[in-house]
């Protein structure tokens, strides 16, 4: 399966169902991240987005179905091999106290490294990650002392140092102001363009998602209710079905992508 200008599937959820303590959260999802694309997973709270991302990152085992990395079951491959290809940035990672930016970014080299010490490759990858994320000037600063925006850049630098071909991010911009949100998304686009990193991320902001992702997957109640180009997916009926939201759509004056203007929330059975 090849898609809209994207390459072959890198990471695929095939008939995936996932549950916490018997309560099913992901209820049969088929979704593929294609080579070289940016995919945004959107949907209301508790629609199963983050859980699906955990499944894609092999942190949680599907109760039914499988996650395929380059066509092979991700759970069959040694986790360290997977880590050389697939990176994840969780929602709110916690840095050890007193760690410097360079040290934290260096931790991203874990899957590439032997027991004792790093190689020249490691040092080059860390330096390149610091450069690519604009954090080189912060290298010797303590992570504790950084602003929220700087810190998120540093975490992305750590993920970049891992040199993953596929990068998953769980709400990478949820705790940032609008300028830093744009900053982080531009950075991810840059990685996608320059390194060809395939990116799947959970986002809440539909307008930013439609502007920065080539494809959207809209989830509701554990299922993907629509997937495709933003202009195809973000429609009034999808917004009503997924979010229980009455909304109008406009065109973004910058990118021509859809902009959602909420009108009101539907009350009643459609929006529990």
């Amino acid at each position: 399966m090849t898609g809209l200008g994207g390459g072959p599937d890198r990471l695929t959820a095939r008939g995936v169902r996932m549950a916490y303590d018997g309560a099913e959260v992901v209820r049969g999802v088929d979704l593929a991240l294609r080579d070289g694309e940016i995919l945004a997973i959107v949907g209301p709270n508790a629609s199963g987005k983050s859980t699906l991302l955990r499944g894609l990152a092999r942190l949680m085992r599907p109760t039914v179905g499988a996650v395929l990395l380059d066509g092979a079951d991700i759970r069959r491959r040694p986790t360290r091999d997977v880590a050389r290809v697939l990176g994840l940035l969780p929602q709110q990672p916690v840095a050890p106290d007193g760690i410097t930016v360079a040290e934290l970014v260096d931790r991203g080299r874990h899957p590439h490294r032997g027991w004792l010490r790093g190689s020249g490759d490691d040092r080059r990858a860390v330096a390149a990650a610091l450069d690519a994320t604009g954090t080189a000037d912060l290298a010797d600063r303590l992570v504790d002392g950084l602003s929220g925006g700087q810190r998120q850049r540093v975490w992305i630098a750590m993920a970049v140092a891992q040199e993953p071909e596929v990068l998953l991010l769980d709400e990478p911009i949820s705790f940032l102001d609008v300028a830093h949100q744009i900053d982080v998304l531009e950075l991810l686009c840059d990685l996608n363009r320059r390194r060809g990193t395939s990116i799947a991320m959970v986002l809440h902001d539909l307008n930013l998602a439609s502007r920065y992702a080539q494809r959207l997957a809209v989830m509701a109640e554990g299922r993907v209710v629509a997937a495709g180009r933003p202009a195809e997916v973000l429609t009034e009926s999808v917004l009503r079905e997924a979010f229980g939201l009455d909304a109008r759509l406009m065109r973004c004056p910058v990118g021509g992508t859809p902009i959602v203007v909420p009108v009101r929330r539907f009350r009643g059975p459609a929006a529990p």
Binding site: R54, A57, A95, P111
Partner: peptide, 19 residues
């Protein structure tokens, strides 16, 4: 070396390939 990854939290440690 493993602990260097583990102190980042279980999710990050696992995604860095730590068992």
């Amino acid at each position: 070396r493993m602990l260097n990854a583990m102190v980042l939290g279980d999710d990050l440690a696992r995604s860095l390939g730590a068992r």
